[in-house]
Design a binder for these strands. Structure first.
Lengths: 255, 255
DNA sequence: CGCCTTCTTGAAGGATCTCAAGAAGGGTGG
DNA sequence: CCACCCTTCTTGAGATCCTTCAAGAAGGCG
């Protein structure tokens, strides 16, 4: 424990600050969180379904998927997490893992003990609030995924997912030509969109031919953002990615 | 404001207490929350997408759906809420409504000002914690819905939904023959399972013929719970409906 | 260079949708 | 209490999107 260099937690702090107002002291409390760093190979679970955990996993690099599964063994990715995300922040108040977490590509995580998170949250109520707020964004994304998987066809689904990841990785709304790193296999895209890998392959070809998106092995190129967003019916509002400074919230001490 | 009789908030308090430990004072703070009661007719929105709200809606009776929509106008229900639920509790920390809320059957709601909720949460950190914890259960349910809609066929999907609602309305795991009130139309079931009303109809007939579930206009009868749960691959763990007393959490002052 | 993963392509099958129309049910006013 | 209307349920037939199965090509890594 404790073998952390401070910059590790900066992306997470930035994420918090994009939606919540935090004092210098509170920010420092985040940066001072202890943790154990760990490298996870692609396709390896680092949290199993039902685990009773005593720490939360901060993603320092790489991509992580939250997995559900039906009894046929068909896997479903219910969320994709990137650098700065904490896929199981909710475990602070609910330690029984409700889904498995798996690295989609090689990833670095930081396991931060609940006890440290709780101490920080107890000392600074604004942190509790900020943690809770971040969890609600996660829930909003999940609700969007239900719509995506439930009410859109293959082309729209893939387009929507690409737009979501593009926006999140790009940190803010986009326009024109966009290129962003996104190292997932077509099989993983299939798990995320509830399609088969075969159909994802055909869908990606169709998007490529239509000059809408070129999904490579390591990165995605989107020649015309607006066109792809139109196909995917993508409206970035639910991501709360770019809350204007004057709209960032702080409830504690404003009552 | 304030025209509330206390018993209104008891179901919500019971829900909180099933997962969190609260002192007498904290419980009283919940029961003392002010609010404006309102009756909502079936199929009426009472929160619109994007609304900036200054209150949260407590469900006193009836069924409420959280709706998403694609641009074809195809609606998708992303969550169903029952008595004692607060579909937009997260609005306390994130006031921009991320989904529309609509009554599925005639419902009574209580609009409780954020300012009162924030005051209670600021005074009693254990309440913040309990609110946050309740929101995480919502997120777990959403993740299950992604799996349901994405990786199960029509029969399994409907079976899973019926089991979920049966468990929640019945307050705890079930066995043997179960009957519970559940006043939804087949079109609403279709919106929740991402099927068409026509196919829901055929699926319900098939479940009825197989003696698995009899879905009526006002209630559902499940002759053999275990059989239906097997079809729907239903595992109630994610609902956190029956956390054993010794596992209920209280973080504040335990650090 | 060789192996293993990932991508690609084809053909056939199936679950679900769409469209259309009629039957049943529940509520309301005369 | 009946007649009427509107919603909901039911049924049929054809269309379609996506899956399944299978096999070969391409790509990355030791």
């Amino acid at each position: 424990m404790g073998n952390v260099s401070k910059p590790d937690l900066q992306p997470f702090l930035d994420r918090l600050k994009s939606r919540s107002v935090l004092t210098g002291e509170e920010q420092q409390a985040i940066l001072d969180l202890p943790g154990r760093r760990e490298i996870v190979q692609a396709n390896r679970d680092f949290i199993a379904l039902g685990d009773r955990v005593d720490h939360a996993c901060f993603i320092l690099s790489g991509l992580v998927g939250r997995f559900g599964e039906n009894s046929d063994g068909k896997r479903q990715i219910t969320a994709i997490y990137i650098t700065g995300d904490v896929p199981d922040l909710q475990s602070v108040v609910q330690p029984a893992a409700s889904s498995a977490l798996q690295a989609l590509s090689i990833a670095t995580i930081l396991r931060v003990p609940h006890i440290a998170l709780r101490a920080a949250a107890a000392r600074y109520p604004a942190l509790t609030e900020a943690f809770w707020r971040d969890c609600t964004v996660d829930a909003d994304v999940l609700a969007q995924w239900v719509v995506n998987v439930g009410r859109r066809d293959a082309r729209e689904r893939v387009a929507h997912l690409l737009c979501e990841m593009g926006t999140r990785l790009h940190a803010g709304p986009a326009a024109g030509e966009i290129v962003f790193p996104f190292a997932v296999t077509q099989a993983q895209l299939a798990d995320a969109t509830a399609l088969t890998n075969v159909h994802v392959n055909r869908t990606l070809q169709s998007l490529r031919r239509a000059q809408l998106a070129d999904v490579g092995r390591q990165a995605v190129r989107i020649p015309n953002w607006d066109a792809l967003a139109a196909v995917g019916e993508f409206d970035p509002a639910y991501l709360q990615a770019d809350v204007r400074p004057e709209e960032r919230l702080r409830i504690v001490e404003t009552v």
